[in-house]
Every structure is written in C-alpha cells, then in structure tokens.
C-alpha cells in the first residue's frame, strides 16, 4: 500500500469552553496585532502508513475525540483542494527528532483497540484564526506559540 497520510483534526464543539483559545486571544490583543474575531484551539494528528480512511475515522472516534466536548475532521493529507473555510489554520508540529510522546501513545492506543497500527504518528497543536490577517497570524505563531528550535509551523492558505 502506498504511504498515505490521514490527518485527524480535533477541536472543541461550539459552545464548549476553550481556555487555550481565550488565552491566545488575550496574548494577540496584548501584542497589538490588529483585528481578530476569535481563535479556536485543538490537536492535529498525522497518521502515516497502514492507514485507511476507516481506520483514521475509527481512531478518531474511539481514541482521539472526547465524545462530549469535541468533534473532529478526517481527511487525507496532500489530497489538495481546500474547502472554503473563512479561517486561517495553523498547526505547530514538533521538529523531526524532537520527542513526540503523544504520537507514540496514539500508536499504543491503536494497538489496544485492535486497529491497524500506523507506522508513524505525529501530533501537533492546532490553532484556527478567524478575522485576522494571514501575515499577522504567521507573526503571532512565530513569536507566541512556537520555538523555531523545536517546532515547525504549518500554515494553511487562508
């Protein structure tokens, strides 16, 4: 099977409190980066190797998502064609070689659920920005949310 990567993105359901989001909004305003409607936070998991869409969805439902507080999106990475969004999505990944204990735990969890175990799992911190200029989003991520020495920023086209 070709090396496919499926991405599971998990975030709070609407109406559920998002402390990291509120905290990030406060920092944005203190940094005077211009207009911003809101920030939503969550996690992103990239599952690679021996992974199909059903596996990714099963992992999402049984392991990665809290049924009461969260919801998820599952899609292939590199599938191309972004749906119209209205927000700017940033994911902050640990750099290659930096400890990613969460990724390892996901593989352990898949084993427990008797699902096919992905060869590799990377876990990253997700930030969705509404009503902000893309340039400012990048700046905010670089100065407030990540350290270039250990993190890599992935900014989807807004």
């Amino acid at each position: 099977m070709a090396e496919e990567t499926w991405r599971v993105v998990v975030y709070r359901r609407p109406g559920c409190p998002d402390h990291r989001g509120r905290s990030a909004e406060k920092d944005w305003r203190a940094a005077r980066l211009g207009p911003l409607k809101r920030i939503r936070t969550g996690q992103a998991y990239d599952l690679t190797g021996s992974v199909t869409a059903p596996t990714a969805r099963a992992l999402a439902g049984k392991l990665l998502v809290d049924a009461v507080m969260q919801e998820a999106e599952v899609r292939g990475v590199g599938a191309g064609g972004k749906s119209a969004r209205g927000f700017c999505r940033a994911v902050i990944w640990p750099r290659q070689g930096v400890t990613d204990s969460v990724g390892e735990t996901v593989r352990l969890g898949a084993r427990d659920l008797r699902l096919p175990v992905p060869d590799k799992v990377r876990a990253g911190a997700l930030f969705d920005f509404w009503g902000a200029a893309p340039r400012k989003v990048r700046r905010f991520c670089e100065t407030h949310l990540m350290n270039d020495l250990v993190h890599r920023l992935e900014l989807e086209k807004c």
Binding site: R95, G97, T99
Partner: peptide, 30 residues
C-alpha cells in the same frame, strides 16, 4: 538520538548566533 550533541561543551560558549538545532532537548517524563 542526536539530542544535545555538544550540550556539555556548548555551555562554555556565549549564547550566540547559529546554535545548531541538535543542542536542544525535550524530555519524556513517562
């Protein structure tokens, strides 16, 4: 892994430009 290569000798230098990324370590307490 390549964590901290030059960590011991590194602390004898000033903080200056161009520190190689391998110096920094993240821990795994579990």
């Amino acid at each position: 892994g390549r964590d901290g290569i030059h960590g011991a000798t590194f602390s004898s230098d000033n903080l200056s430009h161009g520190i190689p990324a391998s110096v920094v370590q993240i821990g795994n307490p579990i």
